[in-house]
Design a protein around this nucleic acid. Sequence first.
DNA 1: TTGTAGGCGTTATCAC
DNA 2: GTGATAACGCCTACAA
Lengths: 353, 353
Amino acid sequence: MTQKFISPRGSGRGPTLKDIAKTLGVSRATVSRALRGVGRMSPALRERILRTSSEMGYKVNYAARALRSRRSNLLGVLVQEHSHYQIGDLLEGIQDEAQKNDYSVLIGTIRHDEDMEIRQIQSMIDKHVDGLLVSPTGTPRGLQLLMDLQRDNIHCVSVLEDLAPGRMSSVSVDELLGGFIATQHLFELNHRHILFFGGYLEDEYFDSRRYVGYCRAHDIYGVAVNPDYRIKCGYTVEEGRRVLLDCIARGLEFSAVFTICDMTAAGAIKGLRDAGLRVPEHVSVVGFDGSNLVSSLFDPELTSVSQTLRIIGQEAFRLVHRKIESKSYDPESIVLSPQLHIGKTTALRKSPL
Amino acid sequence: MTQKFISPRGSGRGPTLKDIAKTLGVSRATVSRALRGVGRMSPALRERILRTSSEMGYKVNYAARALRSRRSNLLGVLVQEHSHYQIGDLLEGIQDEAQKNDYSVLIGTIRHDEDMEIRQIQSMIDKHVDGLLVSPTGTPRGLQLLMDLQRDNIHCVSVLEDLAPGRMSSVSVDELLGGFIATQHLFELNHRHILFFGGYLEDEYFDSRRYVGYCRAHDIYGVAVNPDYRIKCGYTVEEGRRVLLDCIARGLEFSAVFTICDMTAAGAIKGLRDAGLRVPEHVSVVGFDGSNLVSSLFDPELTSVSQTLRIIGQEAFRLVHRKIESKSYDPESIVLSPQLHIGKTTALRKSPL
DNA sequence: TTGTAGGCGTTATCAC
DNA sequence: GTGATAACGCCTACAA
């Protein structure tokens, strides 16, 4: 433990390639190659260089490297909001992998604002990120900008949704399957009138795909889809509650609800309670996310389609990293399968409906 | 809108200082000065340079700047876990300010692991961050390393706790006051037997300070502190529940509980319910954090000592930024006052106790 | 397999 | 006030 820890900057600057080269009586280029493990060289020399570098406490100067090599070892990540209840898992997955590969992660928040989206993308470009991971974004302008990115050598991967199938790489969840297994589960419990709480925008990504799964399950079980059961709803607890109460007020008849996220599911359950209905005795509810946070805070434990965001984050980093290393811009899509987590909010239908 | 957006890298590289200088027939140095707003120069020329730069779509090359100036415009932030239910707010506060000041933020997660803490600090140093914000950390080794940082021109600010009073800058919450107002509130509701659910470690920061506030309130209301009421407890829902049930099993008598965080409070309430007690009819509960997430998911709405993490984040960035700009290493501490948010988990004592 | 040389884009230090 | 010039530390050709 005689290494010089701490340092590279300040008055007592750390050693540079030159210092190591001088110490060893070799050239800077050789040291550089040894350190990066590129080119062919005698293992003995490489070993010697590595040891000496470490002993002298050598630390790469990323600024110099970036300046010269035009690679920043910076990865940009764009998310809607940092304080979203699930985003931490995704970011941890990304960061873990990034760290292993000596990448730093820059995070930008969009806040559901189109101008902000453009500014953030531009800001990532300005900072010379090697790659960009974008999670739920999706304005046409933003998408266009993202598509242009590869002209600037920035590798872009869409995370959670497959933003531009065949034109941009992505790591996403099989939403159709998610919609299907949730609905199937309810059918197996003998439910036939299932509300679908989707997004609030037109043609919302998760909404539309899961709805296809929802419909497919209906087909398979020989039940006609009632279009009135497809309800617009925001992604918050309060929205879930409000919308559910509204359904009751409108006289919709149902014995189960499938919601777009766990927060909405929690809200729906609150609404049901407010209306004097019990879950799952009177109505079954299935959420989407499988959030640990929700499951530890909310009673009863939700039945939910669960996606492991940490893994999605890891896969996303690996994918963009592979793209960067291989300098390949061929779109590549990874689709992960969600799983049904059965909690205490679904049960065999007992109501007459 | 004829500017060249997108660019700095890739084949079609963006313009450099040199290009602007050439276009304007001035020297690179002058352009550089104009852009940074340093040194004295004729306003007319500065104006001309600024306009031309923007028209040509000039973008700073941070790598080059960092290499030459020994300032990276990078800020490191160390947190225990990214997926903590409150951390997003803190990070958003930091990022917002950082963005305004052209700083990028690097986030490292410690995961309650001492070696990891050291590695992360070292990693931030390696990346030449100009400053470091550390939120709840606290191993002696880590602290020592942080104290050494300023020898390397890295400005360090402790966030949420005042890690080394008088020796390191900090932005924190008046924990004593927090403990006081929570307890005072309960006294005002006529409670006299108040459990204090603290941390699980010896000499835990939040625990000890809030306990002082708790004791002070007892003094003022002329009630003796019962040391048995100080209970060790982790920061999770499950811990809160387990510990509360344990208290009941041990025959402790109380009419109120003050917990170290909202998660614990939620857990304690679950435990009370499991024991057949109602909140707030039988027992009042006060949490700490004022988390929106908890309040939207958990019923009933918690009474809680609330701290605005977003503001703390903003203040923390401003402080470290000021330190960086002024090159001052004098420790400076900012203390913010928490506020009591009164929800539906506290009520006038009705129980005989 | 290894060395030499030049420059990436910027800023700091002098001059003028 | 403004300009010339020399680094900053590294990587990439190309030469040996």
